[in-house]
Computed example of a mutant assay.
Amino acid sequence: MSSAADGPDLAFHTAALPVAPEGDALAPVLLRLREIGYRRAVLPPLVPADTDAASLRTAFERADLAPIAMVGLAPGQDVSSDDDDERAAGRAALLAAVDLAVAVGADQLNGVPYGLFGKPAAAPDPAAFERSARVVGEVADLAAGRGVQLTFEVLNRYEEGLVNTAAQAVRYVEASGSDHLGIHLDTFHMGIEEADLPGAVLTALPHLRYLELGQSGRGDLGTGAVDVAGVLRSALAGGYTGRVGVEAFSRALMPGAVADALAIWRSPYDDGLGLAERAFQLVHHAASTRQLHPAVPTQQEVRR
């Protein structure tokens, strides 16, 4: 078991594992993640009406592991839409996701609450940015009143068009008018969109509530084009004390429809718990050596 002094408050995304997001199926996996040293596990987006929240909550409690919930919007629920009814449907979906987060015992709700997942057909409308931010900011305030931190993940241009960089994310928070809305950065997406990954983290730092570590090939954190350890060291040296997540995807371990939606065509690993162990070691080594590195590594270090 780990304690706060042992390193970052670390979460592992259960999508990296060949297990259904159900209490009975997840229970042994959650226990193993806790043995490795993780403090949290991330659930995929769930349909509230189809989810046995009580069994999930029990599985997490028995494992002494905290859940992080996720949300995504379906067609007809776009909070950036200029259609009042569609925005209202999106708002309702977000509030239902907050209800589910509370029911499973999560104090954080990650995901994409600001628009529809998928490659945009055209450049986003600035008015859509403002409409989305107002709705999401309102929901963030309501969620905070129920003990849930709402964050939004910054995706790359091929998965969403409204918010792609840390600088845009900060503007989105400002446009939301909320003091409770948080930013979720993911090094996989940052590797596509950001010219300076450590600098982007520092840009978002005042609002950063979740720093997710993912590699360019979606596999082991130590194999790929992103200097995951360097970004993490920089964030910690720059003063980040929030939650850190590990995410990976392998087609062989995922439902086909989910793999298709995320464009996961390959299988970079075949043992999700083995990947979890290696990621835990990488994160804790990076955290223990952060004082040996500058707060913001040079670009040569980032590319290493």
Results as ranks from 00 to 15, higher is better:
His189Arg: 10
Thr223Asp: 13
Asp227Thr: 09
Arg290Ile: 01
Ser267Ala: 06
Val244Tyr: 00
Val302Pro: 04
Leu95Phe: 01
Gly219Ile: 13
Asp84His: 14
Pro21Thr: 04
Val135Arg: 11
Arg146Val: 03
Asp64Asn: 09
His189Asp: 08
Pro18Trp: 05
Val104Asp: 08
Glu247Leu: 00
Val71Tyr: 03
Thr187Met: 05
Val246Ser: 08
Asp64Tyr: 03
Pro113Leu: 00
Val244Gln: 00
Leu43Gln: 07
Leu253Ala: 10
Val231His: 00
Ala16Asp: 01
Ile183Asp: 06
Ala204Thr: 09
Gly222Tyr: 00
Tyr269His: 09
Ala97Lys: 02
Arg131Thr: 12
Tyr38Ser: 00
Pro124Lys: 07
Ser178Glu: 11
Tyr172Arg: 08
Ala195Tyr: 13
Asp99Thr: 05
Ala286Ile: 11
Glu160Phe: 08
Thr241Trp: 00
Ile264Gln: 07
Glu247Val: 01
Ala229Phe: 00
Ile68Asp: 14
Phe188Gly: 06
Ala235Gly: 00
Glu61Tyr: 05
Ala121Lys: 11
Pro45Phe: 09
Leu202Phe: 04
Thr298Ala: 12
Ala25Leu: 01
Asp78Ala: 14
Gly245Tyr: 09
Leu273His: 02
Gly245Arg: 04
Arg304Gly: 01
Glu212Pro: 07
Met1Trp: 02
Met190His: 08
Ser81Glu: 03
Pro113Ala: 00
Tyr38Ile: 04
Ser132Gly: 08
His180Asn: 14
Gly242Lys: 03
Arg34Leu: 01
Ala144His: 14
Pro45Trp: 11
